[in-house]
Computed example of a mutant assay.
Amino acid sequence: MLNGGIHLSILIGPVVPQPAPQEMIDALQTAQVTTSAQLTGFQLTFTVGKGSSLLTSMLPSGAFDPIVTRIILIVTVNGQPNVIADGVVTRHELTPSNDVGKSTLTLTGEDLSRMMDLVEMPFMRYPAMPVIARVYLILAKYAVLGIAPIAVPPILPDVSNPTEEVPTHIGTDLAYLKQLAEQSGYVFYIEPGPVAGANIAYFGPDIRIPDPQPALTVNSDAATNVETLSFSLDGTQKKITVVTVLDPFTHKIPIPIPVPDISVLRPPMGQRITPPSKVEFYEGGATLSLAAAANQALGVVWKANDSITAQGTLDVLRYGQVLRARMMVGVRGAGIAYDGLYYVNTVTHSLKRGEYKQNFSLSRDGLVANVSGVTP
């Protein structure tokens, strides 16, 4: 798929995908990839006729079988390759039609975290093993898929005494990794790239890469590079969470600790911070050790809600590059209140022959930018 400096490449196959056959490329109707905070999903729709090799040979031979079929999507924009998806097919759907050119085959898939969610572990024990060691031990099994781990140890190590408690892994690897992330106030996800066949498994605090992407420009005549962009401020999003822990000496006296709804790792990006509108009490803190409760409190701080959100669409050719999720981006032309830096939370890539558009969602906390300008 080639148009105006944009080219889509498809790699398909088990374990180490190879370039897709030309007939598969020619039959591609649409491609959609959605990257959210913890998951990347994709969907490819092909136009198929009765004599198409997709139906007569590839589908019967297992070329599109779920789980065993890996697909990598690479978009090259102005000579710069971007791996936007790397995952496995989870289902396929065939929709026959009497109308010529209307029969379709649709492949739906998820990133390689799906491979970590297939086997239920009966009872795995990790005596005296810290969280970071457990994470690396689990992720080592997936190195054959090109997954490289980047894990950040919890701020306060919580290593249990093996004579009193032994950490136990029950369920899938993905479920356990997400459980450990939740207990540490962290996130876990797999980021495709930076090259085809490589992925990064990230376990750590929810931060955004501090190098902002080129600004999204609105209401600026010829300089405008987005099609739509709207903002909203929800005054009910901010809250104060009270975490109750037991005193470290008698373990009987409850101590309430108010935790502000401001992330230290994701600064508000605005001068006028939205005040909290409610107070919530965190359940379960009193049953945890002091270190575990402290990590939970840090998790509340790190996962603070943003009161300002923005939704929009853009044409990649006009924008000049691919907008990436889990990063930062500037906004200009929206006025004093809403200009400035934002966090990119989700991005949906929509490609079809001759067109490449993206839907995106942004967020931050506070009106009026706290920076003097944004990246052009």
Score class of each variant (00 low, 15 high):
R70P: 02
V15H: 04
P153N: 07
Q80I: 09
T95N: 07
R272K: 15
P214N: 07
P192F: 01
L2V: 14
L112I: 11
V16C: 03
V371L: 08
R266G: 06
V374E: 08
L288V: 11
V166H: 05
I262S: 10
V187K: 00
G87N: 09
V68R: 11
A151E: 02
T375M: 14
Y176M: 07
T241F: 01
V300K: 06
K141D: 15
Q271T: 15
P66C: 07
D221S: 04
V83P: 00
S61Y: 06
M1E: 14
K252A: 15
L73M: 08
I71S: 04
R272E: 15
K278N: 14
S113L: 00
V152H: 05
V301G: 12
Q29P: 03
Q296H: 07
E227W: 05
Q38V: 13
I209W: 06
T168Y: 03
T375H: 13
L216C: 10
I255E: 08
V322K: 13
V264Q: 15
D247H: 00
N199V: 02
A369T: 06
M116C: 01
D211F: 15
A369V: 05
S361G: 11
D86R: 01
G373N: 14
Q80R: 13
V77S: 11
R266S: 09
P205C: 07
V245M: 07
